[in-house]
Design a protein around this nucleic acid. Structure first.
Lengths: 117, 117
DNA sequence: GCCCGATACATCGGATTGCTATATATCGTC
DNA sequence: GACGATATATAGCAATCCGATGTATCGGGC
């Protein structure tokens, strides 16, 4: 059925997660909410994508985590490492390049007349 | 070695290809050049990615193609179908949402003080 | 005449990734 | 004690990526 989930989001989820963590530690479910809010519902970050992604970022030493059990409800708080901040800033730069490229490509498309045919 | 090629580009190559075709038919190699030019060299679209992608878009009826042999040099010209234009406009819309989201997420990061530590 | 780099398209196949489905457990509240 | 929200996790398959490789034409330099 050629299922293709989040399409455009692919590849930018790393950057999104790093950026929501830039203003302080958060746990997975909270990150999910933030992404949903920040995008007005446009970005879905399903649990099956998000948690493996967090594990990967941690194994790359871009995040560190600590588990909180005191509330009874288990939460795993993630925090940017120094390497994570460097990566964030590098990817933000790359994102800007990509956005500039797409803007160039899309401007004529969006300005095109609404097809009077 | 956890190879991860084009990173951010993932997922947006469809849109890029559709948008370069918006101002008229082009053949594969030319599309490749355009993407490279439009991005200042930042976007690589290797043949092994681009041609299968074109085949897929055609099989989804978003493109139609015709082969030109008259010049001796074989070229396969691709053109947007009506469905292709609809998809382009839909994906352009989605891209704008994503870009707005990322801009929101990244603004505070980019404005952050340059770490006086 | 021949070599070489650029042009032009194509496919194979290992590696990687994305995400649905599924599982487990706590919490509040009805 | 049922239900929806909160919270994390993984299995497993479909889909994707792209380097390597193959074919062939063209133009220029020698």
């Amino acid at each position: 059925m050629t299922q293709r989930g989040n399409d455009l989001i692919r590849g930018s989820l790393d950057l999104m997660v790093l950026s929501v963590l830039a203003d302080g530690p958060k746990y997975g479910y909270l990150i999910q909410q933030r992404l949903n809010d920040a995008s007005g519902g446009a970005v879905r970050a399903p649990a099956g994508s998000l948690y493996p992604l967090l594990h990967r970022l941690e194994s790359e030493k871009l995040l560190r985590s600590r588990v909180e059990n005191s509330t009874g409800r288990q939460r795993k708080w993630y925090e940017l490492t120094a390497a994570g901040r460097r990566r964030l800033s590098k990817q933000a730069q790359q994102w800007n390049e990509l956005a500039a490229c797409l803007e160039t490509l899309l401007r004529p498309v969006l300005e095109a007349p609404p097809d009077p045919a």
